[in-house]
Amino acid sequence: MTENTAAAQVGSTRVKRGFAEMLKGGVIMDVVNAEQAKIAEDAGAVAVMALERVPADIRAQGGVARMSDPDLIDGIRETVSIPVMAKARIGHFVEAQVLEALDVDYIDESEVLSPADYVNHIDKWAFTIPFVCGATNLGEALRRINEGAAMIRSKGEAGTGDVSEATKHIRQIKGEINALAAMSRDELYVAAKELQAPYELVLEVATTGKLPVVLFTAGGVATPADAAMMMQLGADGVFVGSGIFKSGNPAQRAAAIVKAVTFYEDAKVIADASRGLGEAMVGINVSDLAAPHRLSERGW
């Protein structure tokens, strides 16, 4: 649609990162069909993540988890007017090409699906569509940004309803950013080596005191208070996966989490939003998960 404006540039870094800026202060919800997508939109989601199974079901059912069926994604795109994201496997650049061809708004190169490449992530600069990637620490976040990610989400432990890993990862990333910001210039070379991240990005983070892209939190958020805690810990917004549609009253819980993210510093609003939500997702304690079943350890 931009062919008439001669110098218009699509897919620039500013356009890719800028879209994530518009999602800030919002909740992105996992949905597996058009009906759920509608519930999410009506509840005030800023975007939906289209996938075949929510992480809790991937965990329960096992097997290889892949990109969703294009029919499912199309059905969701036709139902809602808010942005639609979809997941590709780590390193699976052809799934990413397919999602780009399906004209979704954002691709999540996600550890929730089974990795397709245990060495390389997708070269995200090669795409017009922007990518969000997971990270458990600052070095991982900067490596993904170096590969072209336009948004980062801390990983947490998806499909558990246990917020402890989300807390750990956002604290880790924020803590490492603060540590960089406090360093003198000559210490940054070694910091870059230790973070296994490009010096230029390390310098940028040290100078600005923040990531060059928007930072959301994901993985285990199940209640309004969980979501508000992530915001108070410095997240720009929250992904909620299994926590909504594996609960007793998805519409009400979704709306409550949206309110808690906007008024994350107002305990009275969070208290009101937390009333009478019915059953939360049952949940699994991350400490009970054997290491091979921890999704956050996928990606490097």
Binding site: M1, T5, A8, Q9, V10, V15, G18, D103, I129
Partner: peptide
Amino acid sequence: RRNAFGSQQASFEVA
């Protein structure tokens, strides 16, 4: 008209 240019892939910058 909301979202008049299409999906995010049609988002652009221009002078």
